[in-house]
Structure formats: C-alpha cells, structure tokens
C-alpha cells in the first residue's frame, strides 16, 4: 500500500509572540498539564503513566529476574531498558513497511533506550539485586516533545513503584536552543525548529546529576545557561 501522509495544518513558523510561546508559556516554564500516576499495568511489578500535555508515556517494570547466560555475567544487577513508539505517536505515522525507514526508527528507539539506561542507572542500588536484571519497558503513546525527559521521570516513578531500591528519584528535563533563545521543556513544534538541545537528568534531593546530554551548536554561555536553567528549574518539578 503506497500512501502519503496528509496533514491538515502545517507546522507553525513563528514560535514566539511577545515573549510568550504558542501554548501561552513563558520561556522558562514547564508545561502545565502534568499528570503522574502509578499502578497502570496490573501485570507488572511496578508501572507508571506520565503526561506532560501532549507527551504521554507509559512505563512498566518487570523483575528482578535471573540474567540469562547470553547476556554475560555481572556481579551487580543491571537495568535493561526498552523504548518504543506507538505508530500514531508522531505527526507522521511510524513506518512499518519500508525496511530502511524501519531500521532508522529502530535505531532511534535503541538510542533512546540506552540514554534512558544511562540516566537511571546511577540512582538505582544495583547491589540490591546481584546477577539479576530489571526490565524497564517504556512505550511513548504520544510524542509531544521532550519525550526522553518525560520517559526518564516516568521510569524512575515506576522503579519506585516496583520497590526497587534507589538512592533517589530521577527527574529530567530538556532545553531547546531556538535562535538565541533557550526554551525549557520544548514541544515537538519547538524541537522541530531547534538548533541545539540539552537534556539533564538529576537526583533532586541528593542534588546529583545522573546524565547530561548536549546536542547541536551552543555557545559556551548558552550551554552553561541551559544547564543552570534546567538544574535550577528541575527542583520544583521533582
């Protein structure tokens, strides 16, 4: 079946009017519709559902289970993360037929999974489940921007719900550089026009950073400012 996407409306060209963003937020403001819940998947050891306006993520934790031999031997426990997107999550439907596009999508999902693992691992007491694996399964139901940051918050919540020993929860957020402005917690329309992006994950109570990722071009001042902004503003979020 050869079909092309149909979009009723184009992406907006201008992201700011009079210093406010399209959804009425200021530059340094999180999305307002934040919803967190746990126990969303009855079959799992722990689970959570998190919504930041249009970004909707569900996470389930299974395990700890015995680590298979094929995965190698580890003294400590391990997290195994898996991220996937629903076909209808984005503006353009996820490809299922085209092999080249599919492998590109899979690579993206794998990359997010490894970044999620990096952000979570420092907070988890791996020694509490030696030689075992905890599975973190994450499905992005709707990709409304800052997906990885929202997934990180959701996964930390689900780990806590599963009773996995942790040093602290993990909270994360993204900052997009659009032109010479820094936008906190960008939506997909904003991220579409970004020149660079910074994602910070941290343990808010311990005030320790678990992961920081910067992509794209920033001046050093912008990078530091983005870092300051995200770490400072993450505190109330957590």
């Amino acid at each position: 079946m050869q079909s092309v996407p149909f979009h009723a409306a184009e992406r907006p060209l201008e992201l700011l009017s009079n210093g406010t963003r399209l959804d009425g937020r200021s530059l340094e403001e999180f999305r307002r519709g934040i919803f967190l819940s746990t126990r969303s998947v009855s079959q799992a050891s722990g689970s959570s559902y998190v919504e930041f306006d249009n970004t909707k993520v569900i996470v389930a934790i299974y395990g700890p289970r015995e680590g298979g031999h094929s995965e190698g031997l580890y003294e400590q426990g391990r997290l195994q993360c898996d991220v996937s997107f629903a076909a209808f999550a984005s503006r353009q439907r996820k490809q299922t037929g085209d092999r080249a596009k599919m492998s590109k999508q899979n690579a993206y999902e794998k990359e997010l999974a490894s970044q999620l693992c990096t952000a979570l691992t420092p907070a988890v007491q791996l020694a509490s489940f030696p030689k075992s694996v905890v599975d973190v399964c994450c499905v992005v139901l709707e990709s409304g921007g800052s997906d990885l940051a929202v997934a990180t918050c959701a996964a930390a919540l689900a780990l806590a719900d599963a009773g996995i020993e942790m040093l602290d929860l993990v909270a994360a957020c993204s900052v997009s550089r659009v032109g010479d402005q820094l936008l906190l917690d960008p939506t997909t329309d904003e991220a579409h026009r970004e020149g660079g992006n910074l994602m910070l994950a941290m343990m808010p109570t311990a005030n320790l950073v678990t992961s920081i990722m910067l992509a794209g071009e920033h001046t050093s001042a912008q990078a530091t400012e983005g870092y300051r902004l995200s770490s400072y503003l993450l505190q109330p979020l957590a």
């Binding site: 079946m1 050869q2 079909s3 092309v4 629903a86 076909a87 999550a89 139901l141 709707e142 409304g144």
Partner: peptide
C-alpha cells in the same frame, strides 16, 4: 486520548487495556 492520531480510543475490560489509534494517509 491521543491528539497526534486522527482518532483514538483507550479501552479497558477489567485490567486488560488496549489503546487504538487511527492515522489517515492519502493514496492513489
């Protein structure tokens, strides 16, 4: 429930949960 889909539904029967989404495309 999903704004990026052209229509969507989240249904539950007991604990069983299924989410359905429709995306429209155009073909010849």
């Amino acid at each position: 429930v999903i704004t990026s889909a052209d229509s969507s539904a989240l249904i539950k029967i007991g604990n069983t949960t299924v989410i359905a989404g429709v995306k429209l495309e155009v073909l010849m």
